[in-house]
Design a protein around this nucleic acid. Sequence first.
RNA 1: GGCGCGGUGGCGGAAUUGGUAGACGCGUAGGUCUCAAAAACCUAUGAAGGCAACUUCGUGAGGGUUCGAUUCCCUCCCGCGCCACCA
Length: 842
Amino acid sequence: MTKTLYNPQQLEPVWQKRWEEAELFQHTAHTKSEAERLFLLFAFAYPSGAGLHVGHVESKTALDILARYHRMHGKQVFFPVGWDAFGLPAENYAIKTGIPPVTTTQNAIDTFSRQIKRLGISYDWASEVATCHPEYYKWTQWIFVQLYNKGLAYRGKGKVNWCPQDQTVLANEQVVNGACERCGTQVVQKDLEQWYFKITEYQDELISGLDQVDWPEATKQHQLNWIGKKEGIEITYQVADSEETIICFTSRPETNFGATFIALAPEHEFVQKLASGQIEAPEEVRQDIADYITAAKAKSELDRQMEGRKKSGVFTGYYAINNLNGARMPIWVSDFVLGGFGTGALVGVPAHDVRDFQFATQFDLPIVRVVVGADGDTAEVTEESQVQEDEGTMINSEFLDGLDIHSATAKMMDHLEEKGWGKRVVSYKLRDWLISRQRYWGAPIPVVYDPDGNPHPVKDEHLPWLLPTDVEFKPTGESPLVHSKEFIERTERLYGKGWRPEFDTMDTFVDSSWYFLRYTDARNTERFADPEQLAKWLPVDLYMIGPEHIVLHLLYSRFFTKFLRDEGYLEFDEPFMKMRHQGMILGPDGKKMSKSKGNVINPDEVIEKFGADTLRMYEMFMGPLEADKPWSVTSVAGVYRFLQRVYKLVMIEIDATADQESTELTPTALDVRRKLHRTLQKVTDDIPKLKFNTAIATCMELINEWEKASQPNQGVGLQRVDLSVLIRMLAPFAPFLAEELYHQLNLSNPKPETSQPETVHLAEWPVWDAALVTTDRIKIPVQINGKVRDQLEISAEQQGDTETVVAAAQELPKIAAWLETETLIKHIYVPGKILNLVTKPR
RNA sequence: GGCGCGGUGGCGGAAUUGGUAGACGCGUAGGUCUCAAAAACCUAUGAAGGCAACUUCGUGAGGGUUCGAUUCCCUCCCGCGCCACCA
């Protein structure tokens, strides 16, 4: 009697154990095979104490399906796993509980590993890496030293974002709406000496390199916006009655005849000099400016938002001369001018920039129109709605009058350069990367200071520069490492009396900027990876990564890649040739899952109820991979039902057809076989395009048809070859079920072919039979005036014969009825696709 | 404000070199089985009209191109994401 009860809870752990024992997908990095290679990369995750999330399941499963599919096509697939294991949560947890991060992190990794294995993800565990392991961060530190030696890692004093809660510096990117991205506390500005990586050295290549890669357009756009390259001109203005000059960056110099003021950021040198008295000014002006600087500094990002777009400022008493027309433009200080952009100084053109307009009206500065827009308004600009920022024609601008703004820009730039009043420049938003963190749970910055306070990189033989363990976890405002006796003693022992270590650790983005390189040679103790290994696998063929990492991680990884290439370690420019993003799995309420909303779906519970195959397949079936999709508790059951039906159907079929190999197929069975091959064709086509939802839908159609054609408890009389095709086709999606059925099928065969592999996952991907996917009868929809009225069934040979098709269509009763009241004017026939009869009423 | 993405049944979604809109799944209704329920299975299911055959309408709104538009063009509306006083 055939077993027809699908029991995933029982069969899945059995196969998981066998695969693990057989090391089925292990040790692929150093393979000697010359087969086509494929590096599939999953964005490694932070192992949080909360365990695996359904969102992780989606992207892991998607790549796992690809990995299995390509392996079955005979390719060498490298599909490694690792952990972005340093970071704040573990340290904050340690502050709360006293449990060291190394312990909680290892526990979390263990939990994640168990869950991932239960899911049947075919990772190569032999190449596993964790950024917190000394064998890993030794090379993170080594890369730091290489950057240092090339002058690309440097110490700089600067205004930094400081989170009072986490007691650490944050990169600009980690400040969200003026608050710490981790804890939500308002960020304040602080002046500190910090370590930076000079990513700006590569800014142009970070732009041009995007042309080489197959990434979603939106992602490229994000990167471009972040780098923020803008071409413009720096105009030098003489300050009247002074030796000083002020340089302003503008991308719209053609409006310069309309310039009526200069505004400087509070950080601007001229302003600083005024405040300190280096530049002469009446005492009350000096004091006002000094007060303004202090007030601006104290303002948090939140304060700035609270006061909205309201402009504030102080007049310096000085004027700058506009060389074009000799106009005296008052010089103001205002915090709406950003110290970090351009030169920290702007030339105000109120008629053609809303912010400048607001400032001018606030302080009664003149407004001069120099562009007439599409609305033809030539009047004085007195309302904000009249401010003309778009296309237009120049007026009141002497030699520019009558030109459109674009040619005027070019002409003005030429003019300014000729006169020596300005210089074309390119401006970028991208800043150097601040990597210092006053935290414990990270890779120590491998730097020691001599007794004079000069930095020196830690010597290679002292790497890894170990993270000390004799520390206390208290939020003290400085790195806990400051209080490590061992750390300080180690430095003096190795470098001499009076030397001290750098107490800061590195931003975890440093760790994650090169892990994909390490994967290829994860146990190498001599190099970060063997050149041969790197050449063999890189660049990555497909990177699956959440949209939240679009900007920073990718930018930093690309920077590291380009740097290591320039150092001669790599031979490619871009690390990730193709990239795709998985969408977010939302809660059943359509909102982002979060503990506080109580809408979190726990993958463990789904597995317990339905099994891992159902969880995997449901997530793939939910919709397009890249879309955000809400979880549906009831829809999961639909996928479970499908797998159950597959199991039952195949088991019945195995039983019924075991000894009928030589028998001819019945017409019904042949129809099912045809459907099987059409399905195979579609699935084979969909998987590489990551269209898993439609691939699964097609499989469901097949099972529906098959079931309908079946005799109760007897199947339809298919042969072993057919069952084998179905099972192999389902293997990437439902690896456990497929393995079980594969073995049942082999057991049923009295004479197993000797070449049959032990596991379906090493079997060959089936090939669809071209003869079976074509049909000899086809149906052509017949339209009248673009509306389908009937279908014409003809033989495939006839489909090219327009005369016959049109004639036959007119014979159709429904069409004939329509033609009784309509006159046929013409017909449009797309062979094999559609026939449209164009008529007019009689 | 800038950049990007999207809008199709009760729900998730299919279908675009322009060619049968709503595949597949969920939900719902009715049924089979059962003492009953659950599970499973069967049938129906875009809306309106009609006993029915069928007809009309229908892919955010309005125009346009076309024999034919969810798909292409124009003008809007709405939602989401990211960045945001970036000169």
